[in-house]
Design a protein around this nucleic acid. Structure first.
Length: 300
DNA sequence: GTCCAGGCTTTCC
DNA sequence: GGAAAGCCTGGA
């Protein structure tokens, strides 16, 4: 047994990591708040995903979170960053709670964390999200993994797991076949065109990690299917840009309902969000989005 | 240059 | 039948 003081991590048996008394970590809030499309709820209330070429199950046991399968090395190399465990969400929530509306939103989803997901997968996933519905987005992404990704060998035997394809694995897909399999509709050609641009190196994703939010946004918006909202999602969920503030229909509604008190446009809302939330805008957006979508606030 | 309306595939409620 | 984590195009 190994215990790391910093996160209170215990490696139990082999391939099992226990996070003791983990704070600001509720699976339902994290996995159902709309930032990730590949988490599946199991019969025992645990959740399973595929990320970074690995399948992982997360199960709460009292106030502990248990990750399986993961060695201590995989935990340190991959999952600490993926779950954003180096960040203290108590501090973020404390600051955002100065805003009474955010206080309400945080109380609705107190266990939200912003995951650090893979940039290419985020790019394709949020291109597919345009004018779409979450259940359908999830199905399309799973079908893409099944048909174009690689099968993952792992100890979770309840079903088969497939990685999300790389740009190379996706770029030569036949458009008609892709569309008939994945049902992404008019987004299909955007997905494949973007995959080709990235696979061919005409746009490199890695350098965006070092860019500012504004620089990254300009770069990503050159891709077909990536506009103001989708680029902010990619930057927030795939490139760790905390100040990104994606304005979708729900954030528009909740901002108009609580803050602006009038019908306006998404550009105006984006500017207002940046002004009042600053470098915590991404976190504020996710608390607000989850709150609005689950409660229907602002819906006409 | 900015702003806005209409169109887009298909599914879900 | 309307809406859906919007984007693209063309015209004012």
């Amino acid at each position: 047994m190994i215990i790391i003081e910093k996160y209170r991590v215990i490696e139990e048996e082999k391939n099992k990591i226990r996070l003791k008394d983990i704070a600001n970590f509720h699976p339902k809030d994290i996995f159902e708040c709309g930032q990730a499309f590949r988490w599946y709820k199991e019969d025992d209330e645990s959740y399973t995903t595929v990320a970074y070429g690995r399948a992982l199950n997360v199960k709460m046991e009292g106030s502990d979170a248990v990750l399986y399968p993961s060695t201590l090395e995989e935990f340190n190399d991959i999952w600490v960053h993926y779950f954003d465990l180096e960040r203290d969400y108590s501090l973020i929530k404390e600051e955002l709670r100065n805003d009474p509306i955010l206080e309400e939103a945080i109380d609705f989803g107190p266990g939200i964390r912003i995951l650090n997901q893979e940039p290419f997968e985020m790019t394709i996933s949020f291109i597919i999200s345009a004018n779409n519905q979450i259940p359908r987005i999830r199905k399309s992404i799973e079908t893409i993994a099944l048909n174009y990704g690689r099968k993952i060998d792992n100890p979770l035997k309840n079903r088969e797991y497939y990685s999300f394809p790389s740009p190379d694995e996706l770029k030569d897909a036949d458009l008609e076949e892709f569309n008939s399999l994945t049902k992404v509709g008019f987004r299909g050609q955007r997905v494949l065109a973007t995959s080709r641009i990235i696979a061919d190196g005409d746009l490199k994703l890695d350098p965006i990690f070092k860019m500012t939010r504004d620089e990254g946004k300009i770069e990503l918006m050159t891709l077909p299917g990536v506009g103001p909202k989708v680029s902010d999602c990619i930057l927030l969920f795939g490139f760790n840009k905390d100040e990104a503030f994606p304005v979708d229909v729900w954030v528009k509604r909740v901002m108009e309902h609580f803050y602006l008190k009038e019908d306006t446009n998404v550009k105006h809302i984006g500017q207002h969000g940046a002004r009042i939330f600053g470098n915590l805008a991404g976190f504020a957006q996710q608390y607000l989005f989850y709150y609005a979508r689950e409660t229907g606030i602002g819906r006409k």
